[in-house]
Design a protein around this nucleic acid. Structure first.
Lengths: 228, 228
DNA sequence: CTTCATTTGTTCGTATGTATC
DNA sequence: CGATACATACGAACAAATGAA
């Protein structure tokens, strides 16, 4: 029995008491007493759980159950992508191809969810991205929101989180490589508009080609770089 | 500035020195001296990095660079799936549907990679699973290996890791719910054989229906349970 | 096989910063 | 503003595991 079991004991405590995200966890002192270990051990166990987003520590206030997001996945893969100056193009390529595969995989569900319905939020985001593209300005936050909103109604929150996580990884790794970004802001903005409109009119094939258009400039650049 | 930046400093050290998985990291005492922080702080930072599988700690020996696997993702999602006795059927359903979507998404790549080629490893695994099914014995390790081997040649190691991670989550969460498992060992074993043979003869449509057959018994059971 | 140095694991005591009431 | 509760940080000491002499 050691620290690894301290982690398990705290996990067990959360399950046993049926705590939900946001609910308070006993203080460090209480955990020391209840589990019969030192404060340092409790702190390291809590640190482990906080890293996994199973708990969330609020300085000066206490510790609560976390929302168990995919943040640890993002952190690990961002570091992996930024690590090897030789291999990181390969790592980034894998991430982007995975994003493309995921977007293609959800085609039917997305089209079914949006067919015949209008979505003011998505329409506003598409318009904003088009505006930004005209002004040669980036539109990262709109991009992220768009993909989440587009996938949100497919009935699988985990899938939406996963797609968002790979979006985060993608955008975190990209600037760490000193690539000359072609940007192609207009093509990207247009692809987003095509995604929404294809889904709305129930055009699965149009949706798929919009996905391909969306990633085409990036993958082309990566393949060009790989040959060097 | 403290622990959070200590984590960053150790990350930076790994990148700066170009360390690869398995390479040794300075001892705790050295890090204390170099970074000018206490041992407790160094230990919590290392604990954080170990949780993310960015480093690996070996008691009595030292710390080395980890292989940055998807283990943290698995740990978080397993706990999330085991957490709420009411919601976990929903969480498990999301995982299994995601597995199905992923398998379907890689259809073309898998078929292209295996078409016209024979794979002794996969053939042996299929035979072993059929044997086990006859004897009413489970075949977990063969199942996991099969899916990794099947996806291995698609040229995206990250995708293979992700599929394996969701396999791990699936099999870790399933036994925590006291479900009456129909098992359907024979149907599952047959579906694996169909997957391999469809890919080998270049039959994408057959591959897709084998994927559906593979997950059908589980999803049927989950949907039945949900209605209760 | 034993001994010994090295390294991580655990604990205690103390002091400090921070949020809440 | 003060008081309280809590997390953060530090340093020293001892225990346990590993590996090499």
């Amino acid at each position: 029995m050691r620290r690894s079991t301290t982690v398990e004991q705290i996990k067990h405590l959360i399950m046993q008491r049926g705590l939900r995200p946001g609910d308070a966890i006993p203080t460090e002192a209480e955990l020391c007493h209840d589990l019969g270990v030192s404060r340092s051990s409790v702190r390291e166990a809590i640190r482990t759980l906080a890293t996994l987003d199973i708990v969330e520590v609020r300085h000066g206030h206490g510790t609560v159950v976390g929302n168990m997001s995919l943040a640890p996945l993002v952190e690990t893969l961002v570091f992996r992508g930024a690590l090897a100056p030789g291999d990181d193009l390969e790592a980034l390529r894998e991430v982007i191809e995975l994003r493309r595969v995921l977007d293609l995989a959800f085609t039917d569900a997305v089209v079914a969810a949006h067919e015949g319905k209008s979505n003011p939020v998505l329409e506003r985001l598409v318009a904003q991205m088009a505006e930004c593209a005209e002004k040669e300005e980036p539109f990262l936050s709109e991009d992220r929101l768009f993909h989440s909103e587009l996938l949100s109604p497919i009935g699988n929150p985990l899938a939406v989180q996963l797609v968002a996580a790979f979006w985060d990884i993608h955008t975190a790794v990209l600037p760490k490589l000193d690539l000359v970004l072609p940007a192609d802001l207009r093509q990207t903005a247009n692809a987003h508009g095509d995604l929404y409109r294809s889904a709305q009119r129930g055009d699965a094939e149009g949706y798929r080609s919009a996905v391909l258009d969306h990633y085409e400039p990036l993958l082309r650049m990566l393949n060009r770089k790989s040959k060097n």
